[in-house]
């Protein structure tokens, strides 16, 4: 609890990075997200929790417009990053996603070498002028993802040959290599064993210094461990949003309490 109080102080100083207002998402005829308003702060870890199918992942995918890749999905409402409407017609999702990186539930390294996995983003966005710059970017990203020491001797080995936890950290390295400002993580530890989970959680905490991190998790313990802010979703609506400590110790909404005490979900 002591820790958490310190974190709370941090939170107060941070600016708002993502501002969502009246967000609705439809999958065909299904109303998946109902009128969600949320402000996500910079340099903060924000956790989205809730029972499965509550819409937390769907909302996360609105923030970097990954829902665009699904034909039947329709997004309404207003999401702003640094005050810019990301659903504005002038916004190119490609540029947006360079700014808002994403890490997925299952580690999904490309069937390429470790180096090429990390260099993929910088290459397509043209972030490096030459080979040595690219080498630097790759090394920095791998160091940031706390996996450099494990892979520095085999950068040309295939990324798919790593263990699950290493793969997920490689994917995080891949995401931070494009120098995003926001990092979205969709249940990044659900496919990992406890030791790997601990490593990734530690990493998430470090990442907070440079990024605004939004993490979807089905594990309340994880949310409590890594986040400063928590949002609870239920049946497509945002039920409660606030300081993590408060949500877990003194929720305002009875639904939140039921979930946290294990009665729903």
């Amino acid at each position: 609890m002591n820790d958490m109080r310190i974190l709370e102080r941090d939170v107060e100083t941070n600016a708002i990075k993502i501002a969502a207002k009246g967000v609705q998402v439809f999958y065909g005829d299904t109303h998946a997200i109902k009128d969600v308003d949320v402000d996500i702060q910079d340099k903060t870890v924000t956790a989205f929790i809730g029972p499965s199918g509550c819409g937390k992942s769907t909302f996360l995918r609105c923030i970097n417009r990954m829902n665009d890749t699904i034909d039947v999905a329709r997004v309404q409402g207003d999401i702003r990053i640094d005050g810019e409407d990301i659903y504005d017609r002038k916004v190119d999702p490609v540029q947006l996603r360079a700014k808002v990186g994403m890490v997925f539930q299952k580690p999904n390294p490309f069937p390429k070498s470790i180096y090429d996995n990390v260099a993929y983003g910088p290459r397509i966005h043209g972030l490096a002028r030459n080979k040595s710059e690219l080498d630097d970017i790759v090394e920095r990203a791998l160091r940031n993802a706390a996996i450099w020491n494990e892979v520095k001797d085999r950068l040309n080995a295939p990324g798919t040959g790593l263990s699950g936890g290493q793969q997920q950290r490689l994917c995080i390295a891949r995401a931070v290599a494009t120098e995003p400002e926001v990092l979205l993580m969709d249940e990044p530890c659900s496919a990992l064993d406890p030791i790997a989970t601990a490593q990734v959680e530690e990493l998430i905490d470090e990442l907070r210094q440079n990024y605004s991190v939004v993490i979807v998790t089905h594990s309340m313990q994880q949310a409590a461990r890594v986040s400063q802010k928590t949002a609870f979703f239920h049946l497509g609506s945002l039920v409660e949003y606030g300081e993590t400590g408060q949500i877990f110790t003194n929720p305002e909404d009875p639904r939140t309490e039921s979930y946290i005490t294990g009665r729903i979900g």
Binding site: M66, V94, R97, K99, N108, F110, G121, I124, R174, L184
Partner: peptide, 20 residues
């Protein structure tokens, strides 16, 4: 998941197809 990974990094569709 491989396509998602590439889109998530801001690759265009053709870049995803050609490189992943």
């Amino acid at each position: 998941s491989l396509r998602d990974g590439s889109f998530g990094l801001g690759a265009t569709h053709s870049e995803t197809i050609r490189q992943v």
